[in-house]
Computed example of a mutant assay.
Amino acid sequence: MARRVQFDRLGGPEVLTLRDVETVAPGAGEVRIRVDAIGLNRAEIMYREGSYFDRPRFPSGLGYEAAGVIDAVGAGVAGFTEGDSVAVVPAFLQSEYGTYGDHVVVPAAAVVPRPADVDAVRAAAVWMAYITAYGPLVESGEVRPGDHVLITAASSSVGLAALQLARHVGAIPVATTRGRDKKQRLLDAGAAHVIVTDEEDLPARVKDITGGKGVRLAFDPIAGPGVETLAQGIAPGGTLVVYGALDPRTTPLPNARSYPALTTRTYTLFEITTDPERLRRAVAFVGAGLASGSFVPVVDRTFDLADIAEAHRYMESNGQVGKIVVTVTHPTAGS
């Protein structure tokens, strides 16, 4: 038997239940992983609540990230064998696969080797965050050394990864946070400047920081009407990248009547994780950063799998700085 987190209706953390289910053998193109750690993401809250683009099919599992060891390989899988230490990257729908459990089946295409010097907890905190930041800050080629980059909701795991990637390519990261309680932690995490949006005028502070020029790129998971404020701090010819929808309100398109010419676009890491060649490049880039010490995943707190509902409540509280990770304890032989 395996243990899986499932839910039978939309709702709050209380709908999540840890159940004993039959262990499933991997099919063609799949692997089964003995999970040691699971990375939590906002997308899983939205999926559980029914506000995500992908809708649950009950009873539904959930989860995009995990780290562990392969314990079974399906037909047609090349490059992986039983006993390999691996991590799971988000490259599938939660309505089809999920990582919340002690043994899970996922597509082999969504699995990457785990570096020997990266433990399971940190490995579960890497791929959603760093690949999400990698696309606009690195792969697109829009950000160059000396450019200012505005990173909103910077205390999230993606925001912290973006701070590190911006520093890595020689850019100047400017972080935002709503309250000043996280300001020093963001400075310690690599932000060159921190704007406390509950207290400061964001466009004015951006202009002050950049000498009136504005930022080259704004990287935003919030969306909603606030993008109009962000647009006022972007340099002519710069880019606004919206990669999330934390604000459910309609997101307006900044226009030329109010702002200098800029490019506005949406972005999702699935553009990279579902393209084998782009994923190969992203994994190579992030892996090199992990090996050199330039990239250090920030883990705020860990929970046990049995406390998954409490872990979701903590994520909803917005108090964390970095990744929330759930650890999985396996019974020893004979127990």
Results as ranks from 00 to 15, higher is better:
residue 89 V to L: 11
residue 89 V to D: 06
residue 90 P to W: 11
residue 90 P to S: 11
residue 90 P to N: 08
residue 92 F to M: 10
residue 92 F to I: 11
residue 93 L to R: 15
residue 93 L to C: 07
residue 93 L to K: 14
residue 93 L to Q: 12
residue 94 Q to I: 08
residue 94 Q to C: 10
residue 94 Q to R: 06
residue 95 S to Q: 08
residue 96 E to V: 14
residue 96 E to M: 11
residue 96 E to L: 13
residue 97 Y to I: 09
residue 97 Y to M: 10
residue 98 G to I: 12
residue 98 G to D: 10
residue 99 T to S: 12
residue 99 T to D: 04
residue 99 T to K: 06
residue 99 T to F: 07
residue 100 Y to P: 01
residue 101 G to Q: 04
residue 101 G to E: 06
residue 101 G to S: 07
residue 101 G to A: 10
residue 102 D to G: 06
residue 103 H to S: 12
residue 103 H to R: 15
residue 104 V to I: 15
residue 104 V to F: 10
residue 104 V to D: 08
residue 105 V to W: 02
residue 105 V to H: 04
residue 106 V to N: 00
residue 106 V to D: 02
residue 106 V to E: 00
residue 106 V to G: 00
residue 107 P to T: 13
residue 107 P to D: 06
residue 109 A to E: 12
residue 109 A to L: 12
residue 109 A to W: 05
residue 110 A to I: 08
residue 111 V to E: 04
residue 111 V to Y: 06
residue 112 V to P: 00
residue 112 V to Y: 00
residue 112 V to F: 02
residue 113 P to N: 13
residue 113 P to K: 13
residue 114 R to M: 14
residue 114 R to A: 10
residue 115 P to V: 11
residue 115 P to T: 10
residue 116 A to C: 02
residue 116 A to R: 12
residue 117 D to Q: 15
residue 117 D to L: 11
residue 118 V to M: 03
residue 118 V to K: 01
residue 119 D to C: 05
residue 120 A to R: 09
residue 120 A to E: 08
residue 121 V to G: 03
residue 121 V to N: 02
residue 121 V to D: 04
residue 121 V to S: 03
residue 121 V to T: 14
residue 122 R to F: 04
residue 124 A to V: 11
residue 125 A to W: 03
residue 125 A to K: 01
residue 125 A to G: 07
residue 126 V to F: 02
residue 126 V to M: 06
residue 127 W to K: 01
residue 128 M to A: 13
residue 129 A to G: 00
residue 129 A to K: 00
residue 129 A to P: 00
residue 130 Y to F: 15
residue 130 Y to P: 01
residue 130 Y to G: 03
residue 131 I to N: 00
residue 131 I to P: 00
residue 132 T to N: 01
residue 134 Y to S: 08
residue 135 G to C: 05
residue 135 G to S: 12
residue 135 G to Y: 11
residue 136 P to C: 12
residue 136 P to G: 11
residue 136 P to V: 15
residue 137 L to W: 08
residue 138 V to C: 02
residue 138 V to H: 06
residue 138 V to L: 04
residue 139 E to T: 13
residue 140 S to M: 13
residue 140 S to P: 00
residue 141 G to K: 09
residue 142 E to G: 14
residue 143 V to L: 08
residue 143 V to Q: 04
residue 144 R to M: 12
residue 144 R to D: 09
residue 144 R to F: 08
residue 144 R to A: 15
residue 144 R to S: 14
residue 144 R to C: 10
residue 145 P to Q: 09
residue 146 G to Y: 07
residue 147 D to A: 10
residue 147 D to Y: 07
residue 147 D to R: 05
residue 148 H to S: 12
residue 149 V to W: 02
residue 149 V to S: 02
residue 149 V to P: 00
residue 151 I to N: 04
residue 151 I to Y: 03
